[in-house]
Design a protein around this nucleic acid. Sequence first.
DNA 1: CTTTATCCGGATAAAAGATATCCGATTAAG
DNA 2: CTTAATCGGATATCTTTTATCCGGATAAAG
Lengths: 162, 162
Amino acid sequence: MQLAKGIEWTTHVCTIIALLPEGKGLSVDALAEFFELPAAYLSKQMQALRRAGIAQSVRGKGGGYRLAQSPDAITLLDIVIAIEGPSPAFRCTEIRQNGPCGLERSECKRPCEIAAAFAAAEQAYRSALESKTLASIMQEAAMNSTPEHMMEIAGWVQRQSS
Amino acid sequence: MQLAKGIEWTTHVCTIIALLPEGKGLSVDALAEFFELPAAYLSKQMQALRRAGIAQSVRGKGGGYRLAQSPDAITLLDIVIAIEGPSPAFRCTEIRQNGPCGLERSECKRPCEIAAAFAAAEQAYRSALESKTLASIMQEAAMNSTPEHMMEIAGWVQRQSS
DNA sequence: CTTTATCCGGATAAAAGATATCCGATTAAG
DNA sequence: CTTAATCGGATATCTTTTATCCGGATAAAG
């Protein structure tokens, strides 16, 4: 079970484009340079964020990406779903219906106990991610960082933004 | 993010071999037939359970698999770790150290806030799975099943066990 | 209008991981 | 000792993830 790298990438990217002033954007090339990531693949990931309504894009010269919502309206769960899709990790194939002692389909309206247990665990996972907004992540990061480093980032964003 | 099928398979298998009387085992072929699964691949998954100390195997004629521990000592988390390995789903590649505003490695003793948030979510997931033992799953299943079906399964296990 | 910068989507390809199979090694039983 | 049953590791196939490239659309700037 592995989470796509795109989740790490786009989450970090969101914490950067959240710093943009109103109406400005950052190009994929700039973002890829900021984190030393492959630009073409990062572009694909950002498109997924746009489709999910998390980011906006502006085409053409001077265009780029910015957030489509306020940072306190975007949760880590939103980003995970945007990149990985909404389907749960545990896939129940109903093998209790198979074999010599298999149940009839009509007896299987409720999920089996195993599927239910995994569903509950995934719900706990999603709830934890849902409780973390981009804003809360950025606030924590600010508290663990230095003023110098934050100024460095803010300066870079301002220089690169269009 | 997908969980391997082997997790569903081996968890169901564990609820069956838990019914074996002392000293008996069930062959992979029998278990594969019981759930209509590909025997060779199920065999591989069962090997993972054995390496993890969840199941025991006996080779040769009359051999097979049985549990290596009491059902109330085996949790769903144990099975997940046996099949998927212990590494977390979120892989932090420390991209905060990259690029023009990258941090020095010496400044990165603590995990970044994003990695920490995902680690906390995974911990919630693992805790939920750890709270479910094989025994508790089997008890729930028994309450939602009929005496007839349970007898059917018990009879099959007894006939196939060696 | 032309040039330049940028996103968008599709085609493609390489790498990794999940899925599946085969056959040799091992052991009980006759 | 031979046979049949069974596990165990090596191998092969398929799917997903990761990654690249390019032509097209779009928009700002000269």
